[in-house]
Design a protein around this nucleic acid. Structure first.
Length: 233
DNA sequence: ATGCTGATTGTCT
DNA sequence: GACAATCAGCATT
């Protein structure tokens, strides 16, 4: 049965270790509903936050406050972090109680580009080439915190998409030609945790933060859609 | 009640 | 590349 199949995919996919999940999420289609509009985009950039051992992670040393409670949920839980009025979208990885997550830092718009431009007051890559930008573009806010990401087939089930829920579509996904790594952005003075290569992005994609024009490539995705594959935990 | 911090963005040089 | 804007959450007084 289709639904069960999707549930199984969901369960195993988000239980993957955080670095694997961060890389696996590149190219996946993220979908939300805003009013009557469907807004979506392919994930272009992510960062892994490795939980209680990671000085840059909000759950470092097991810190547990109402703000970070979502991190302790099961894989696929949505964690929204507010910084300087900007909302940042994370998806929890690993098993319940292991507070690791993947930060989504960029998307390539697919559905509802016009709405996103209006939401942002900007056009082009400025619509969604940063963690605070993409959440504003698609209207992700605190209502999403602690919710669970839902697997859906956008082409077959558009009518089932509701507001305040984050969706992911595996079948509409793209596969990056090449995944690049770098240290995470904006993490000063945290020793090795500043320097570790825990940021991942699609080589040449325009909607990656800090990308230079000279590095843009229209052919950053593989031609064909591919089969879903991932490690079982 | 007060102070500090920060996984950012936008603007200006 | 530097810096101001701006605010929720948490720790401290």
């Amino acid at each position: 049965m289709k639904v069960n199949k999707e549930k199984n995919i969901f369960k195993d996919f988000f239980k993957q270790d955080t670095v694997t999940l961060a890389k696996s999420l590149l190219g996946k289609l993220l979908i939300v509903k805003s009013g009557e509009n469907i807004l979506s985009g392919y994930i272009t950039e992510t960062e892994a936050y490795l939980g209680i051992i990671d000085k840059a992670c909000h759950s470092y040393k097991g810190k547990r406050t109402p703000k970070v409670e979502a991190l302790y949920g099961k894989g696929g839980t949505v964690y929204i972090y507010t910084m300087h009025t900007h909302k940042m979208l994370n998806i929890v990885a690993c098993e319940k109680g292991n507070p690791q997550a993947v930060l989504i830092r960029g998307i390539e718009p697919l559905d509802g580009l016009g709405i996103m431009e209006t939401n942002r007051g900007k056009t082009g890559i400025l619509v969604s080439n940063g963690p605070g930008k993409l959440t504003k573009a698609v209207g992700i806010n605190d209502k999403f915190n602690m919710s669970e990401i839902t697997v859906i087939n956008r082409n077959e089930n558009v009518q089932k998409i509701n507001e305040n829920i984050l969706y992911i579509d595996f079948e509409m996904s793209k596969e990056p030609k090449k995944i690049m790594k770098s240290p995470r952005i904006g993490i000063p003075d945290k020793g090795i945790w500043t320097r570790k290569f825990l940021r991942f992005y699609v080589n040449g994609n325009k909607y990656v933060s800090g990308m230079k024009k000279g590095d843009f490539s229209e052919k950053c995705w593989k031609e064909k859609n591919y089969k879903i594959k991932f490690k079982k935990s």
